[in-house]
Amino acid sequence: MKVELQVNGARRAVEVEPRMTLVDCLREKLDLNGVHTGCEHGICGACTVLIDGEPARACLIFAVQADGYAITTVESLAPAPGELGVIQDAFCETHGMQCGFCTSGMLLVAHALLKRNPEPTREEIVEAISGNICRCTGYGQIVEAIALAARRLAGSNVGVEPMP
C-alpha cells in the first residue's frame, strides 16, 4: 500500500505491506536508523517517535495507520550536521547515556516534555520518562540531563530547538 508520511518536515511517500510497523518503515524504507527496534511490543520505549508532536511507540502502529501524520525522529533534533541540540548536549555532559540504545527515545520524550512544560519538576521528569527503559544509567543521570537542558533553555532565548 502507498503511504505518505510527513517525516521531520519532509513529505515522504513509501510503499509498504500493511503489516510493516512504523518503526520498521522508518528504519528500512527511510534509512532513519536513530529510531531503535527494541522489544517490538510496546514495553521498552526504544522506538519512541513523536506523532503529531506527542511521544508514541513506533512499534505499536502500522505504517499504514500513520498515513498523513507528522513523524518526528531523533535525526531532527540536531541543529546542523555534526552538531548537537541543547538536550543532546546535556545528555553528553551528565553521562545521561551509556550504550545509547534507549537514548533516542529518551531525547524525544524530553523534547516533548520541555516543549510543553519548560520548567518541569523532578517528579514530572520521572513521570515523562517512566515508559522508557534504560538498563545502563539507573536513570539518575537522565533525569539530571533533562533538568540541565531545562535550565539552559530557560537561560537562552531560543527555547526548545524548533521542530521542523
Binding site: 500493511p18 503489516r19 510497523t21 517490538e40 511490543h41 510496546g42 511507540r57 512499534c59 505499536l60 502502529i61 502500522f62 499504514v64 495507520q65
Partner: peptide, 20 residues
C-alpha cells in the same frame, strides 16, 4: 492498536483484515 498490535506481533492475534 495499543493492545492489538503487540498481540499481532506475538501472533496471539491473526486477523485477516484490519478495519481502522
Amino acid at each position: 492498536g495499543q493492545t492489538l498490535v503487540p498481540m499481532m506481533a506475538m501472533r496471539l492475534a491473526r486477523p485477516s483484515r484490519l478495519v481502522d
